[in-house]
Design a protein around this nucleic acid. Structure first.
Length: 202
DNA sequence: CGGCTGATTCGCT
DNA sequence: GCGAATCAGCCGC
């Protein structure tokens, strides 16, 4: 028994809260009909209208406006925003808030749950399957070709299986790799489940 | 159109 | 701890 996260989960005007609440949810891909999945253990929140670490916000001027790359973030909630980072890595985000508000949650880590053999193969048999945002997409088979996908479709979605990490096991920290964002780089919008508290996931 | 840069990862020092 | 890999987006000329 599992519940697909409803639009009302994504449409809320609080991307930081959503990033925290996504911890413990199961992220599922069915690329090419092959199921792979894992519980979300690390996220980061990006807020379009006032956060210079967010792609939607020009980090020099502070102006927020859509570009061809970031158009998905300005669209309706509950879709996948996938972009290419450093010319190599595909990074998966969940779009939140109403259309016009460019908020998104970056999926940075999973606890592997389903399709481990496929994920191992996609990861070229490296020991780290789904830690790190670039590794998550590689294991799930997600690329920029999946940008804009509705998370209620049959290729990529997020399920609520009732797993709720205890609040005291959730660590908040500044986001990774956004030093250019000035004061916004200090916002503690990175969330992860303390690895030592993850015995429930096995 | 040229140049710079990045929400990263991995291997080598 | 450092730097290469690798390229689309974005800015400025």
């Amino acid at each position: 028994m599992s519940n697909l996260l409803p639009p009302s989960f994504y449409e809320r005007d609080d991307v930081v809260r959503i990033a925290r609440e996504l911890l413990g949810m199961r992220c599922v891909s069915r690329v090419g009909g092959v199921p792979t999945a894992g519980e979300i253990v690390e996220t980061e929140a990006y807020r379009g209208h006032d956060d210079r670490a967010c792609h939607a916000c020009d980090r020099r001027t502070g102006q927020t406006r859509p570009t061809p790359r970031t158009a998905t973030m300005f669209g309706p909630a509950g879709r996948a925003y996938v972009y290419l980072c450093y010319g190599i890595h595909h990074l998966l985000n969940v779009v939140t808030n109403r259309a016009g508000r460019a908020d998104a949650v970056l999926i940075r880590g999973l606890y592997p749950a389903e399709g481990l053999d496929v994920m191992r193969e996609r990861r070229n048999h490296q020991p780290n399957l789904t830690t790190g945002p670039g590794n998550v997409t590689q294991a799930l088979g997600i690329t920029t070709a999946h940008n804009g996908l509705d998370l209620r479709g049959d290729t990529l979605w997020i399920e609520d299986r009732g797993l709720r990490p205890p609040p005291e096991t959730i660590r908040a920290a500044p986001r990774v790799g956004v030093d250019y964002a000035g004061e916004d780089a200090l916002r503690p919008w990175r969330f992860r489940i303390d690895p030592a508290a993850m015995t429930d996931f096995s």
